[in-house]
């Protein structure tokens, strides 16, 4: 997990045109990921985790939404590209070849009328130009690598003949068949039972130990992220509110939202005590974000929080937070960038 970033996202803004107005889904998201690193992305539903990933993969249909700003520099094998500026045709060489994808629901991502072997082989033929026979034997190898027993027979089975956990293994086999250096996994274990989730998490750890595979793992489950990630991004209201190494994030959370989120997990407080909860609900995203997205739920809010929007600001090596307040010191934090403010104020 060393060296230059594999992917550097800077200032991503994604908007949707809904019936009742614009949805400001992503409001300036910046992060990077290095080879071999696992980046966990957490946040509650609607915080923008999936839209961020779909934006990077060119999967926002122009009929419903658009990327309004930002760059996403990816070091592809053929040279650096900006993922936010590629045409659909150019994306054909990126998705599956340079970046593997795994989603929550394997059954809708797999083709039900094609054997799993053909689906893996297709990726190999398209991206690596392998012949029929060679791609079939590579498909069998891939199935074995993701832990499917009896792969030389299972290669001819259809998706419905696999259990949920095995289908997710097949999805991972397809995602990794062409040898991408980055895998984006959006809630890949959310639909699985906990004992099967543990198997998939163990598999991904093994695959990473064998190669320099970088993984972006999106989850709303902080336990899953604690178990897999090297670094964590916490999303709220279409922004990153905190970013830190995994130990630092769990032991020394700085943003009021992150603290609230961690405190509301059962088992983290005193036994038998009440759960800490965050009053209120997440923002509606109907307006351009010109204040702190957490302002109306935050117990530390000060006047300026409703007038100005704090930018993600480094507070120590590899730890950033987007908040004007320093909770531990009980005073305003110095040097927090103001990245937007309400007019007439």
């Amino acid at each position: 997990m060393t060296g230059e970033a594999l992917l550097t996202v800077d200032g991503l803004v994604t908007k949707f045109d809904a019936a009742d107005g614009v949805v400001h889904a992503i409001n300036g998201v910046s992060f990077d990921i290095r080879p071999g690193e696992t980046l966990g992305v957490v946040g509650e539903s609607g915080s923008g985790k999936s839209v961020t990933m779909m934006s990077l993969l060119g999967l926002i249909p122009s009929s419903v939404g658009r990327i309004a700003a930002g760059t996403a520099r990816y070091r592809a094998t053929s040279g650096e590209v900006d993922l936010l500026k590629l045409s659909e045709r150019q994306f054909g060489r990126i998705r599956g070849r340079e970046i593997g994808m795994v989603f929550q629901d394997p059954i809708s991502s797999l083709n039900p009328v094609m054997t799993v072997g053909r689906q893996i082989a297709e990726s190999l033929q398209r991206h690596l130009g392998l012949g029929r026979r060679e791609s079939r034997s590579r498909a069998i190898e891939m199935l074995a690598r993701v832990g499917i027993a009896d792969p030389s027979h299972r290669v001819d089975d259809y998706p419905h003949e696999f259990s949920g956990g095995m289908r997710q293994r097949v999805m991972i086999a397809i995602a990794l068949a062409a040898g991408p250096r980055l895998m984006i996994a959006d809630e890949p274990t959310t639909a699985l039972d906990v004992t099967v989730q543990a198997q998939i998490m163990a598999l991904v750890r093994e695959l990473q130990a064998e190669s320099e595979l970088a993984v972006i793992w999106v989850s709303h489950d902080l336990g899953v992220v604690a178990g897999l990630a090297d670094r964590v991004l916490v999303m709220y209201g279409g922004t990153i509110v905190e970013s830190a190494g995994v130990d630092d994030l769990f032991e020394n959370p700085q943003h009021p939202y992150t603290r609230g989120l961690l405190a509301s997990i059962p088992g983290t407080g005193l036994a038998g005590s009440r759960l800490a909860s965050i009053p209120g609900t997440p923002p509606s995203l109907q307006h351009e974000l010109k204040l702190c997205p957490f302002a109306d739920r935050c117990s530390h809010a000060i006047d300026r929080c409703a007038r100005e929007r704090p930018g993600l600001t480094p507070i120590s090596a590899d730890h950033s937070s987007a908040c004007f307040w320093d909770i531990d010191a009980s005073r305003q934090r110095d040097g927090v960038a103001v990245i937007a403010q309400r007019e007439g104020m």
Partner: peptide
């Protein structure tokens, strides 16, 4: 043993019983 804990150090140190199959 399969339940993920929101504590990275415990998660790393943990011994797991991995069941086969579904």
């Amino acid at each position: 043993s399969a339940v993920p804990l929101p504590n990275p150090k415990q998660e790393r140190a943990r011994q797991r019983i991995l069941l086969e199959g579904d």
